[in-house]
C-alpha cells in the first residue's frame, strides 16, 4: 500500500479508526492495571517445581506443550510460505500454459575481498563458538531460561554471520535441502514425542518421564515402569530446596527442546537463504 492512497478521505477514516483502537486498548490496559485475575496461573506456579526446575520450561513445553507444537508449526510454515511468496510458486497444472513467471531478484552480490582482515580471520572461530553456545543453551533448557527457540536463533545468527563474512565460500554452508530437512525433522520429532504418552494413556504428549499424575485415582490409564525409566531417568536432577533434597526429572522436555531447536534453525536459516541466494529449483544457490 502506498502512502499516496492514504491521502484524502481514506486517510482520515484510517486515522480515526486507529485512534479509536488506540484509545480502546490503552483504556482497557489502564483498567486492568492491578485488577488482573490470577486464574489458572496460580495453579501452574504451585506445580512447576515438581517437573523442570525452570518454571517457564514446564509451562511452555508441558502444560501448554501442544500449543507450542503448533507454534513451532507456525514458524516452519511461516518460513516456507514467506519464501514462496518472495520467490516463485511451486506447482502448475499439467498441460496448462503458464503465466509469465515473476522475475526473480538477482542474489545479493557479497564482496568478501573488502572485508577487514580481522573479521575474515576471526569470523570462523566465532561461528564455531556461537554454534557451541547455541547447543549449551538448548541442553540446559529445563534448568535455565534457555531452550529450543533461543538455540535456533543463536545458530541462525551464526549462519548469517558466516554468510555475511565469507560470501559464497561460507564455511557453515547448509543447503536448501538440508534446511528443509532440518525444519521438517525437528517438527516431526516434536510431534512424535507425543507418541509414548498417547500409546500408554491416550493423552497425547503426556509426560511419561516425569509422570506426575498417574497416581491419581481418577487417572484413566497406567504408565508402564519401563517408559518412566527410559524417558525420566536420563534427565533426573537433585534440587536442593529449603525442605531438603528433591529429585525431579523433566522427562520429555529436553528432547522437545532439541526438536524445537532444529525446527527453528531450519525455518530461520531458510529465510536467510532465500534472501541471500534467491530461491530456484535448478541451481542449489551456491557454488557456481
Amino acid at each position: 500500500m502506498e502512502i499516496k492512497e492514504l491521502r484524502g478521505l481514506r486517510g482520515v477514516v484510517a486515522a480515526v479508526a486507529l485512534l479509536i483502537i488506540f484509545v480502546g486498548v490503552i483504556s482497557s490496559f489502564i483498567q486492568l492495571e492491578g485488577n488482573v485475575a490470577r486464574g489458572i496461573s496460580e495453579e501452574y506456579n504451585k506445580l512447576a517445581y515438581r517437573m523442570a526446575p525452570n518454571n517457564l520450561a514446564s509451562w511452555l513445553y508441558d502444560y501448554r506443550g501442544f500449543d507450542t507444537l503448533i507454534e513451532t508449526g507456525v514458524i516452519y510454515v511461516g518460513a516456507v510460505v514467506s519464501v514462496m511468496v518472495i520467490g516463485r510458486g511451486l506447482v502448475g497444472l499439467k498441460g496448462m500454459r503458464e503465466e509469465e513467471e515473476v522475475a526473480a531478484a538477482p542474489p545479493i552480490a557479497l564482496k568478501t575481498e573488502t572485508m577487514p582482515v580481522l573479521l575474515k580471520y576471526f569470523a570462523l572461530p566465532v561461528v564455531i563458538l556461537l554454534l557451541a553456545y547455541g547447543l549449551l543453551v538448548v541442553t540446559s533448557a529445563s534448568t535455565s531460561g534457555g531452550g529450543g527457540f533461543q538455540c535456533g536463533v543463536i545458530i541462525s545468527s551464526a549462519y548469517l554471520l558466516s554468510v555475511v563474512a565469507y560470501g559464497r565460500r561460507s564455511p557453515l554452508n547448509m543447503r536448501k535441502k538440508a534446511l528443509v530437512a532440518f525444519g521438517a525433522l525437528g517438527w516431526g520429532l516434536y510431534t512424535l514425542i507425543g507418541l509414548p504418552g498417547y500409546l500408554t494413556t491416550n493423552f497425547w504428549q503426556y509426560n511419561v518421564g516425569a509422570d506426575l499424575w498417574s497416581g491419581l485415582p481418577s487417572f484413566p490409564a497406567a504408565v508402564p515402569e519401563a517408559f518412566r525409566q527410559i524417558f525420566g531417568e536420563p534427565f533426573k536432577l537433585a534440587l536442593h530446596l529449603e525442605e531438603g533434597v528433591y529429585y525431579a526429572t523433566s522427562g520429555i522436555l529436553p528432547i522437545i527442546n532439541v526438536a524445537e531447536a532444529f525446527n527453528v534453525i531450519g525455518a530461520i536459516c531458510l529465510i536467510f537463504f532465500a534472501f541471500v541466494y534467491g530461491w530456484s529449483d535448478s541451481a542449489e544457490g551456491v557454488e557456481k
Binding site: 507456525v74 510454515v77 510460505v81 514462496m84 510458486g89 506447482v91 503465466e99
Partner: peptide, 21 residues
C-alpha cells in the same frame, strides 16, 4: 489464536504456490 494464525498463513501458502503474478 494459534490455529487461526497458522490457518491464515496456510491460505497465503496455498495461493502463492500456484506462482501466477
Amino acid at each position: 489464536w494459534i490455529v487461526v494464525e497458522i490457518g491464515s498463513l496456510l491460505v497465503a501458502g496455498l495461493v502463492a504456490a500456484s506462482g501466477a503474478g
